[in-house]
């Protein structure tokens, strides 16, 4: 299924290290991890909590910079990008799905979904059209005017996916996307994510400790104590 011609990785990490704190309180979250993410791939970063898997995703998503090593975006070292370029990249090329949703409870569903477009400075009319299109894709267009606070957990996560989708990103980063959902809803959200990957060629980077979710990805990277302890390629895994 994953028939996209793989040439150079869209994102790559080379020997990245990241630590927090100082002296005796110093904690090495990542201790030399290398990783390549190819366009159209779905990749799972698997590990227990505290393993450094979220830190790895944050570094790949340019939300943070490594203490040592390089994060490459295409052929460019992320260090060489200006703050503005990094902001634009996160805004236009990346979509984010978080376990805790991070929806503004007092804003409408539509306003939540179009937040990346608002930040990008897209005109109000176009924002609405694109936001509605994204909601339609997730069959939530009838909830557009509802307050986000009034939605169920599954609906919320679908809104979050719509938000991640609204700017037509190249890569969607998902941090425990099903962590807060029951099994059935979780499976539904998974289906949505993988169909985006399959139909639209959106690269997926999923952080999870759920082996079933990880098994659906093209590739699994196992992280323990800040190091990569193995990887697994599942040929034709995506369902």
């Amino acid at each position: 299924m994953n028939s996209t011609t793989i040439t150079s990785p869209v994102l790559a990490a080379r020997g990245i290290r990241k630590s927090y704190g100082r002296g005796t309180a110093r904690f090495d979250a990542l201790d030399g991890v290398s990783l390549e993410v190819y366009a159209g791939q779905s990749i799972a970063i698997v590990g227990k909590s505290g393993s450094g898997k979220s830190t790895l995703m944050h570094l790949l998503a340019l939300l943070d910079s490594p203490d040592a090593g390089e994060v490459m975006v295409g052929d460019t070292d992320a260090k060489e990008l200006s703050v503005k370029q990094v902001n634009r990249m996160r805004n236009e090329d990346f979509g984010f799905v978080f376990q805790q949703f991070f929806l503004n409870p007092n804003a409408t569903v539509l306003d939540n979904v179009v937040l990346p477009l608002t930040i990008a400075g897209v005109a109000a009319g176009e924002r609405k059209a694109r936001g509605m299109a994204a909601l339609q894709q997730l069959e939530l267009d009838d909830k557009a005017k509802n307050m986000a606070v009034n939605l169920s957990g599954g609906q919320k996560q679908r809104v979050v996916i719509a938000r991640a989708l609204v700017n037509n990103p190249k890569v969607i980063f998902a941090d425990e996307p099903t962590g807060n959902l029951d099994t059935m809803t979780g499976a539904l959200v998974e289906d949505i994510l993988f169909s985006l990957n399959k139909d639209k060629g959106i690269t997926l980077v999923i952080v999870t400790h759920d082996p079933e979710l990880a098994a659906r990805c093209d590739r699994q990277i196992f992280i323990r104590d800040g190091r990569e302890v193995g990887s697994l390629d599942n040929a034709g895994a995506a369902a």
Binding site: A61, R88, R90, F96, Q100, F102, L115
Partner: peptide
């Protein structure tokens, strides 16, 4: 705080 974090993650400048 989290809302600000989200907006910054989505590329909103300081």
């Amino acid at each position: 705080t989290r809302e600000i974090g989200l907006m910054k993650a989505m590329g909103m400048g300081g």
